[in-house]
Design a binder for these strands. Sequence first.
RNA 1: GGGCGGUUAGCUCAGUUGGUAGAGCACCGGCUUUACACGCCGGCUGUCACAGGUUCGAGCCCUGUACCGCCCACCA
Length: 862
Amino acid sequence: MSDPSFSPRRAVTAPDKPALEGLEQKWSAAWDAGGVYRFDRARDRAAVYSIDTPPPTVSGSLHVGHVFSYTHTDAIARFQRMRGREVFYPMGWDDNGLPTERRVQNYYGVRCDPSLPYDPSFTPPDPSTRAGQGKKPPAVPVSRPNFIELCARLTQEDEHVFEDLWRRLGLSVDWSLTYATIGRTAQNVSQAAFLRMLARGEAYQIEAPTLWDVDFRTAVAQAELEDRERPGAYHRIKFDQAGTPGAWLEIDTTRPELIPACVALVAHPDDERYRHLFDTDVLTPLFGARVPLKAHRLADPEKGTGVAMICTFGDVTDVVWWRELQLPARAIILPNGTFRAVAWGSDGFETVDVPRAQAAYDQLAGLSSEKARARIVDLLRDSGDMLGEPRPVMHAVKFFEKGDRPLEILTSRQWFVRTMDHREALIARGTELAWHPPHMRARFENWVNGLNGDWCISRQRFFGVAFPVWYPVRDDGSLDYGRPLVPDESRLPVDPSTDVPDGYRPEQRGEPGGFAGDPDVMDTWATSSLSPQITAGWLDDPDLFARVFPMDLRPQAHDIIRTWLFSTVLRSHLEHGALPWANAAISGWVLDPDRKKMSKSKGNVVTPMALLDEHGSDGVRYWAASGRPGVDTAFDAGQMKVGRRLSIKLLNAAKFALGGSLQAGPVTEPLDRAFLTSLAHLVRECTADFEAYDYARALQRTETAFWQFCDDYLELIKSRRYGDRGEASAASATTAMLVALSTFLRLFAPVLPFVTEEVWSWWQEGSIHRSRWPEPADLEEAAGGGADVAPLAHASEILGEIRRWKSLNKVSISTPVNVTLSFAGGVYDALPVFELDLRAAGRIQDLRRVEGGDGVIVELVS
RNA sequence: GGGCGGUUAGCUCAGUUGGUAGAGCACCGGCUUUACACGCCGGCUGUCACAGGUUCGAGCCCUGUACCGCCCACCA
C-alpha cells in the first residue's frame, strides 16, 4: 500500500473513555517541544508556502472576530503543510502608534510632554492602586523617552496574553518568527524603505493643508477618515457688497465661526443670479474684511443660496477652491483646535474698521470651534447679520476614525508618498492578485479610483518609527527643509532626536549652522505596509528573502483593504516592482445575533478564552471554519456545540475502528471497495476546495461523509467486522475502516487539530500535522482499483427504510424483521454485493424480492 | 449619488455547467443498538424577497423593483 498511515504504526493505545478535556494543553506543549511548526529554511521557494500574517493591535483585546479569521488562515496553513509545502507562518504584534499611546495614558495615568527631560529613575503609578478609586487623579506628565518605555513595557505584557490565546486556539505559527511593528527590524525596514523612496522621489515633504485631529494634534490620512452623523445648523448670513450701500449677498453656512477665516465667496460660473457680480468685493460681517466673489464649477447653485463662503479651511472643497482660485490663506485655528490670537489690520488683509473687527475677534480667540460657533452666533444676531434663526440639520462630518472631535484642515509640513501617479499601475496590480472571494477586488479598485491626494505618512506623535532625517539650521535659526540630512542605511535605525547626523557634533543640535531632527513619527500603516519585508528578512537576510518573497498569502478582513492591503501593494510596487503576495484571502466579520458587527461599545463581546474553555478549541474552530471566505457570519454558540460533538464522535468512532482484532487483509468485499472509492472522490473534492481557499466547503463535505461513514457504513459492516462471516471478510472490513479513519482524520486535521492529533497518536507515529495529505490514488489502490459506488447508496437506502419502519412502529432497532423488496432491475443487480451486510445490519430474517414496483415492505417476524 | 454583497424551513446557512427544494440547530416522537445517551432512529417545517423575460424546464441566466448590510463620495 502506498500510504503507510493506512495501517497502525505502533501499538494501539485508544483509551476506554476518550475525552476532549485537556487536549489543548497536552498537544500545544507537544507541538512546541517537537518543533512541529518550525519553518525549515533549507527549502527553496517553490516548496515554501509563506503567509503575511496580520499583526493584531496589542493595545486592544482579541475578540471573537480575531479567532474567526485567524482560524481560517490556520486551516489553510495546515492544509498547505500537509500538502508538502514548508509553511512560513510568522506572528506579528502591532504595538506601534496611537492606540498604544492611548492605552498607556489610560493604564498608567500619564501623558507625554516632549519638553521634559528623560528621568531614568521614573516609575509609573501602580495601575492597580488607580483602579476603583472613583475620581481619576490628573495625568502625570512624563518625558517622551519615559513614555516610550512605558509603551514598550505594556505592549510586552499584552503580547504574552495574545500568544497564550493563539496557542490555545491551536494556530500553527512558528513562534520563533514573531515581529513587532515597533521592533528594531520594523524600524530598520521602515526607515530604509523611506530613505529609498526619498532617493527615488517617491516620498516628499510639503507644507500644505492637511486633515488634522485637534485632540491627538496630528495629521491623519484619507484612509483613516470616517463619516459620523452629527447635528448641525444652517446659518443664513449677510455679506454687504463693497461700494453698494444697502446691497448684500446671502450665504448659508454650518460653520459661521469661520467667517474671520473667510477669503472669498464663490458661485457657479453659469449662475445668472450672481454672474454680474463676479470679481466684485463683499465685506465679511462683523470683521469687515474685503473679499471677492469668485466663480467656480464646484459651486452648486442648488445648495443654499448658491453662494458659498471659502474659508481657511472649512472642508476639503475649500482647499480645492483656495488652490485653484489662487486665494490667500487666513489660518485662525491652532493645532490644538482653538482660535489663535490675530492682530487685525497687520496681517495683509484689507479691513474697513480694524477696531471693530478686533473687538469681535477677541471674543473668539482662545475658544474651540464649537464654543466659537456659539459665541459668533450671538454676535451675528446682535449685529443683524444673521437672517432668521439657525435651522437644525443632521449632516455627516469627517472624523479621524480614532478621534472624538471633527477634523480640522490645517496647514502644516508633512511627509507624503506619491500615490496619485501610480493609480493605474495599482489597479493593474489588483487584477494580478488572486482575491478570495473574487468580488473583494472591487473594493480595492473603488478605493484607488477614489483617492484624492497623496498618502500623508507623518504623524505628530511619539510612539512610532521616527523619520531618519535631520535639517540644517540656518544662521537665522530657521530650518532648511529643502536639504534634509540623511544617514547611511548601515546606521539604521536612528532616532534623530538623540542621534546626530554625519559630520555634526551633538552640541550643534538646534544651533545656527547645526542641525535639528525631524520630530515626527511615521503613520502606523507606513510600517505595517512593509510586513512582508519585515518578516522575510528583506534587508538583513537575503537568503530567507529569496525563499519566501513574494509571499503566497495575505489574509485579512475586508475593512482594511483601503489601508493595509492597499498600502502593502503600493510599497511592494514601488520597492520591488511586484505584488507582495499571490493571494489575498479576505475574511468577513462576526456579527452578533442582531446582525450588527460585534463590538466592545455594544457590550456584546464574548471573551475568546471563555469560549475556548466552554466549547473546546476544536469546537470554536469548527464554528469559525464553517463561515465561508469573505462572508460576515453570525456568532453561533450552537455551531460550536456541533463542532464539539463532532470531535467527540471522532474519538468514539476511532475507538471502535481501533478496537478489537486488527487483523488486516486485502479489501475484497465490494461494499468496502465502494466506500473507499467514494472516499477517493471526497478527497479529490476537498483538495480542490482547499486549493481554492474554501476551507468551509471542504469541512462541510468531510463532515457529511463522516456522518454517513458512522451511521450507515459502520453499521453495515459491523457484524462482518466482528468475524460473523469469516476472517477474510472481517479483514477486508478492518482494513477499509482503518483506511477511512486515517483519511478522515487528515481531512479534518486543518480544522480540528487537537482531536485529530489525539486520535492519530493512538496508532500512528509523528504528528498528523506533518503527515501527508491523503491522495485519491492511494485510496483507489487500497480499494483494489476503482469500484462501483452505487451498491453503497442502495444498501443505505434500504437500511433507512427498515429503520423508518421500526421507528414508526416504535420497536427496537434490534427487532428481527422480514423484508420484501420491490425494485427495478439496477438494485437487484447490486443486491448480491451487499445482501449479507444488509441482512445483518437490518436484523433481517427473511429477505424476499418481487418484480416491479418501488419500495420496501417490512413485517415483524411472526 | 456611485460600487459591492445579500434576501431559500422558526434560527444559522448550503444549493458551482438550468433538470423532482437540502443540512444542522430548534421542536415533536421513538429506541439500552457488544464505539459513542456527549448516543442512535424517525417525524414536522418552504409563494426559494417581488415583478417581468429567456427556456420544454429557473432558487440558479437576463431586466427592473423593494428591503438589509458594507465600502466610497457629497457635506455651503
